[in-house]
Design a protein around this nucleic acid. Structure first.
Lengths: 219, 219
DNA sequence: CGATTTTGTAGGAACTTCCTACAAAATCGT
DNA sequence: ACGATTTTGTAGGAAGTTCCTACAAAATCG
């Protein structure tokens, strides 16, 4: 067992199958920002996935439904035959119907996330299914993430909202401290609380949230 | 002029038009990890883009070629009519031919990046066109990023490669220091040099690079 | 062989993260 | 109205990270 798995026994051993490099790269970077995600392999195609899965020994397979060479469901079914404990998250092109979803669950798929959903929902789903639970994001979303953050934002104190707005505009912590007449430590404490309350981990999430909230931009 | 632009007069005022939320989110998070990227708006559709561009006053528009309601090129041409100084980066579905590329350049597009290229290439292109230069990634890529990093990796010293491998496996800095018999400060110094030499900014880039390099996985 | 560059190593200052702490203000339950 | 509890505002400690600088030894260059 290598170091990463030794240090983090509950690592997510992830295999990703996405046809287009831009999307695959973007998802991988995002996912690897999480310390407990361990990438054990990646593929562009379904066949390549099946060829590499045995050696890679993943715990989670994220696979696109619309692959160039096969449909992802077929590949996922094959993968599950090889390894029934594999947790599969299917990335669908569109929101799937209830009937189709039943087929996926029947096939052993643990989660379905549509390409029209946010990346937070995909990440949330990933951490959900790692524990073997079924999560069906396209129908049973436990509330829209953006909606949850909006509610959480309204629950922030006045000061918290003030700091959130300044941080979202990339005002340096030092300047925020000067402007509010508090110490840098205080600003950091506020940041901690804002991120926890909104369910964020990094500044880009806050920036995007604040931007979208203030403009009602396409979501 | 708001704080962000005041603090970073050379900010990239970015507008992003991508139909699918998952890709749009992923790209936005990636781009917003860079301090000098300021998101001034985003859209799912071409029409929404045109409606919002004037108020948003972007310096750079990144737009998908295959939009649901229009083709990105037409929208980009309209956008350029409204604002000839706009730098447009077109995201194409496939690598474009030389003929088609000439059409894009004729239309005032500053760069074209295919969805089969890496996100580093998109980011690199973005920072390139911000200064008004033309960059045509699908034909005139100044070397394949992955190839460049591979060459750079071979140029690392033995010790640098050793540290790179351990960091890529998420071995804590303290453990690396103990194992190599050096101080944590030394490990940090090595990390600095490795990232500079390989052109990386964050650990996920290193992790992905090392993984791909060791496996020759799909690229 | 002398000059220059690279490597190996590590510290300083400032910043960030994670955690803890406390008084005042606000809220809750009776 | 009042005591109990929670929240808010504020900020420090310890450890880790970032950015920069420094220096001797080793390697490379001309």
């Amino acid at each position: 067992m290598d170091n990463a798995s030794r240090h983090h026994p509950q690592n997510i051993r992830l295999y990703l199958t996405v046809g287009q490099r831009l999307l695959r790269d973007s998802l991988l970077f995002q996912l690897l920002l999480h310390d407990d995600v361990e990438l054990v392999g990646e593929s562009e195609t379904g066949l390549d996935t099946l060829n590499r899965l045995e050696a890679a020994r993943p715990g989670v397979l994220i696979i696109e439904e619309d692959l160039l060479d096969n449909d992802g469901l077929t590949i996922a079914e094959n993968a599950l035959s090889m390894n029934p404990t594999l947790a599969v998250l299917l990335i669908s092109e569109i929101t799937v119907s209830a009937g189709r979803l039943a087929i996926y669950l029947e096939a052993g798929i643990k989660a379905v996330v549509s390409k029209h959903q946010s990346i937070q929902e995909l990440i949330k789903t990933l951490f959900y299914i790692r524990n073997g639970q079924v999560y069906v994001g396209t129908l049973q979303t436990p509330g829209n993430n953006a909606g949850e953050a909006m509610v959480a934002y309204r629950a922030l104190s006045r000061r918290e909202r003030e700091v959130a707005q300044l941080m979202a505009r990339r005002v340096p912590v030092k300047d925020i401290a000067d402007q509010l007449g508090v110490s840098c430590k205080t600003v950091h404490s506020y940041k901690d609380r804002i991120f926890i309350k909104l369910g964020f981990e990094r500044l880009p999430e806050l920036i995007l949230f604040m931007k979208r909230q203030s403009q009602g931009a396409a979501a």
